[in-house]
Design a protein around this nucleic acid. Structure first.
Lengths: 230, 230
DNA sequence: AAGAAAATATAACGACCGGTCCATTACTGT
DNA sequence: ACAGTAATGGACCGGTCGTTATATTTTCTT
């Protein structure tokens, strides 16, 4: 696996999406190339989440997305590494979007974290404990071998981290406390997903979700007490 | 990879370890076969921790342990899967032993957890962020594909879990609370090791270690208060 | 309608994978 | 010393890996 990342993906095709006769009623407004590109990325993201980097073969991705080999290397000249990076970015933003939906002014941070735990457990169960964190397996496998993959994983993790942190800051928690708690929350959710797959049980996620809710509530409450006192 | 685990390892060679002329001064008291068996397991454990299951080739393990292929399949008729299980068990008990050393009547649970975080961070740094949890990568890769590997990972994780839980119960914490906190502690340490590898920084482990110490102290303190009140 | 570019399709490549086989060598109990 | 087994040393297998090369078809521009 190359450590350099000079490969440039061809995304030129998608810039002029809505042309004159783009009034095709049901079909997506993307060009054919962009569509098969998206199809391959989706298949890669799914398989990477289930079987990891080394456990997912190029041919498997192509079969799952009904795409011939030649097309892959047209859309992703950088090969497996470039495709993986694109898939990780998609998985990362998808997960971030779902997380964002949970964070509303009406929902307390503790509650949001517990809901998130439940949603993660739900996805584990409905996939036969195959779909855990979309980044974790690839991170552990490839972070040491490919610097560009490692950087991508870091970016996505940091995005999630910041979402949790911002949710706490919005409640008036000092940035330092919010950051430290956010790292712990993210870590324990990641670790819990790992244990759930090892145990084939959602028990770790449930217990961690409960703990996180209690911790968040306690943290915000004691902060408020200090504020009032000052 | 076979899901069945009918393979039986040949450990017949090691039962008669100390023979008459076992007075060989420096050499280990193990038979030659047992020694190369241990060598292969150690090399496999090391490589599995660094590169995972799919990322570690049989030939790589053999080269690292200076062992020919024929020997492997003599000692481990079950092939890669059986060798992996043996390596995971060794890694798991090694880690458990280190953890046990940290747990003394003089050390508070919170302090022990923070020390453990520091030790994990130290190993990450000294291995160039290659050596994280010896089970995590293999769990995520192979738990879904091989039931026997999954079971081995579960056993080892549960062993660590029980160590943490027992440490808390020894301080008078109710079993339910101790169990829930132990899962959270183990989860957050596992997740923190993952984030450390993604970030190439020990920062997550340090913050989680700090949080765990505070949480453990708060948990034990509030329990003591309740006890006194009752 | 013609030409260029984008995209697809297939075949084949060399390297390496985990595993099998078997002849040979080292050890051990009698 | 000798028999019998434990253990080693490699050659070799079919299969799959990621990648490359090239011919063809589709799509867009003019």
């Amino acid at each position: 696996m190359a450590t350099s990342s000079k490969a440039t993906s061809s995304k030129a095709a998608s810039i002029k999406a809505a042309s004159i006769k783009a009034a095709s009623i049901k079909e997506s407004a993307l060009s054919k190339g962009a569509r098969s590109r998206a199809r391959v990325i989706a298949a890669a993201a799914n398989l990477l989440q289930r079987r990891g980097y080394n456990g997912t073969g190029i041919s498997e991705i192509l079969k799952a997305s009904a795409t011939p080999k030649g097309s892959l290397y047209f859309h992703f000249p950088g090969g497996k590494e470039e495709l993986t990076i694109a898939a990780l970015k998609e998985s990362g933003t998808d997960f971030g979007d779902k997380l964002r939906l949970l964070i509303t002014p009406e929902t307390s941070p503790g509650h949001a974290l517990q809901i998130a735990s439940g949603a993660l457990a739900q996805e584990l169960v409905s996939s036969g404990f195959e779909k855990g964190c979309p980044l974790a397996t690839v991170t552990l496998e490839a972070a040491a071998a490919s610097e560009s993959i490692r950087q991508t994983c870091e970016e996505q993790f940091r995005g999630w981290h910041e979402l949790i942190e911002a949710m706490l800051v919005a409640r008036g928690l000092p940035a330092t406390d919010a950051d430290e708690f956010a790292v712990t929350a993210l870590s324990s959710l990641e670790g819990a997903m790992l244990l759930c797959r090892a145990y084939r049980s959602t028990e770790p996620l449930e217990k961690v979700g409960k703990q996180l809710r209690r911790m968040a509530e306690h943290l915000l409450a004691s902060h408020d007490v200090n504020e009032r006192r000052a």
